[in-house]
Nucleic acid binder design. Structure first.
Length: 183
DNA sequence: AAAGTGATCATG
DNA sequence: ATGATCACTTTG
């Protein structure tokens, strides 16, 4: 509906994001993703929307991170190289989309919680038609799912992460939710 | 405030 | 095999 569509021939300079920033630790990657364009191609149609909110999940020691339970079948993806997509089903109905962060064997990911027009991780995936069939895609080479940088940078503020009451207090309180200030 | 929905993981 | 839990959303 209100997704951003960049017309062909637009002179805005777009650059597909390669591996460099994805190799950063999750807590550094998450704010850098704010303002970037999340791009999805389905049935020949390209959908682009700007990322406005993201959360970092970082390392086995982070009790909120799926990597905390070790290399389980689902979470094993988190040990892959940054730029891999991690999509899983939550509450039986919501697909959650994350970008794996860091070097191979440094588990972590950034949950995309909002894009322009859509706030909430379940709404983001619904709007962009992202589901588990994209799990494991390398976003630096995929033609189904990738990230572009047009130079936009947002100021942002932080808060604790949402929906992780099960984590220990130390990690429950980490200000690893990054919210763009759009004025 | 509480249901809805099914995969995932730990337990047995 | 069974059961609790869950990076949520919608409805009342």
């Amino acid at each position: 509906m209100c997704l951003i569509n960049i017309a062909e021939g637009d002179n805005m300079e777009l650059k597909k994001v390669g591996t460099e920033i994805f190799l950063l630790p999750a807590v550094e990657l998450a704010p850098k993703l704010l303002g970037k364009l999340l791009c999805r191609c389905v049935d020949g149609n390209i959908i682009k929307a700007r990322i406005t909110e993201a959360e970092a999940y970082s390392g086995e020691e982070d009790t909120a991170c799926h990597a905390h339970k070790g290399k389980t079948p689902r979470a094993g993806i988190l040990w892959r190289r940054g730029g891999t997509s991690y999509v899983y089903l939550c509450y039986g109905m919501h697909e959650m989309f994350n970008v794996v962060s860091g070097l191979e064997d440094e588990p972590g990911a950034v949950l995309i919680r909002g894009v322009t027009g859509y706030s909430g991780p379940g709404r983001v995936t619904k709007a962009m038609k992202i589901d588990r069939s994209l799990n494991g895609d390398d976003m630096t080479v995929s033609d189904r799912l990738w990230v572009e940088d047009d130079g936009t940078e947002y100021k942002y503020h932080t808060s604790p992460r949402v929906g992780i009451d099960y984590a220990t207090e130390e990690y429950r309180l980490k200000p690893w939710r990054f919210i763009a200030d759009i004025n």
